[in-house]
Design a protein around this nucleic acid. Sequence first.
DNA 1: TGTACATCAGTGAACGCGCGTTCACTGATGTAC
DNA 2: TGTACATCAGTGAACGCGCGTTCACTGATGTAC
Lengths: 238, 238
Amino acid sequence: MTPSTSPLRTARDRARSAITAEILATARTHLATDGAAGLSLRAVARDLGLVSSAVYRYFENRDQLLTALIVEAYDSLGDVTDAALAATAADAPRERWVAAALAIRGWALARPQEYALLYGSPVPGYAAPQDTVVPGTRVSLALMQIVREAHHAGTLRRHRRTAADVALSPVVEHDLTALVGVIDPALPTIVMFDGLVAWTQLFGLLSFELFGQTKGVVEDHAAFFEDAARTMAARLGL
Amino acid sequence: MTPSTSPLRTARDRARSAITAEILATARTHLATDGAAGLSLRAVARDLGLVSSAVYRYFENRDQLLTALIVEAYDSLGDVTDAALAATAADAPRERWVAAALAIRGWALARPQEYALLYGSPVPGYAAPQDTVVPGTRVSLALMQIVREAHHAGTLRRHRRTAADVALSPVVEHDLTALVGVIDPALPTIVMFDGLVAWTQLFGLLSFELFGQTKGVVEDHAAFFEDAARTMAARLGL
DNA sequence: TGTACATCAGTGAACGCGCGTTCACTGATGTAC
DNA sequence: TGTACATCAGTGAACGCGCGTTCACTGATGTAC
């Protein structure tokens, strides 16, 4: 029989979670300066006045620490996005999309190395475990939520019935039917498709800005991003 | 007075450029397996049967080797894109765009670490020097070329005059006017805008696929990519 | 064509650094009776 | 409430590894006359 399941029962438990948090916080600041590849257990331990082997009481190894940082970052970004949606609950869908996009950009600019950890090149030798999957979907689900609400409210413009209309290939139609079945069976696959495209577009733009591809191409990245986000929303029918 | 400017004049010159090429080739294979952060001068030298310090006869330091690899990769991708355009010179603009996109994707899938080096998170501690700028613009100029040709041929649909139309902010309008002035003064800024957006979208999609963000979301990445590329082209008015 | 000198590729040793991880240990904290 | 034992955080030393870069050197290749 387990003695108790309530957390932080003893002083030891409290100390344990406090130090775990300190390790994560210190690791986060190291990440911010040196990037994921430069994150070192020894350096973190040093900063905390611990001997390097002590960290192994809290994390099995370096990869597990990295995983915890990734989960934390996904959740932090998820929170920011959810907050943007909550703050604009009464607004028009298009403005909600733009607000969410700007919130995501704000988070990314404030924590560029964490953004790179989530959306940049994979860390060599590190394979993301299952734990990161669910937090990783929060942002895209939040963005999709805007589209779904507009669809159910009947305000989603079917702008695709124009000259720009392009038929989906059967394979993609099939894949999207499965995806829609999981997320929202009432959603037409073409709306799902547009949503996915907008999602990749938003992060593509952000990655280009953060990773320096658009340097020298546009001057005012904030304005360009907002215009692009509004265009995405319009193309989504929002 | 310099003795001669013709290259490979002597056996020494020939050996020099042969070994430089060998170093680059070996470095490229190391890049492919370990990523940019794991690229090591010593390992490259070891593979070539050289002592590590010998590499310094050919490259001043690790960063310069990395720069050479980046330039090589940009040029390789630029060649592939140009070849796709040349092979489809007689086709409809929309199909040319799709062909170029597929060519870029093919290159990226074949050389994922080089793709990551160009379009992934910046290598920590490495600042890309001026040498990489010009080769880095080749792909986007090639893609823009399709749009420009369609515009000058008068076949570019102005689909933006629909409900999806969104006005550009004055700042972006100003930035794009400058950009258009450099690339093609005859191009409307809104076309430039759409082109930039499509460009970021194409690479956003590709990065998501290569970096694992769309794993589990769509099954058939090739089909999704092609449908998305065709949609981009349609939205561009191609 | 031959010789004296300059250039340069490659060597091998060294400097100084940092890393992840293991292991036997000590002392403090917590638990059961 | 007090005692005996179990748990666990943190220590310090060690293993084995790899890295970028410098430097004085040797011997081969190239150049000028």
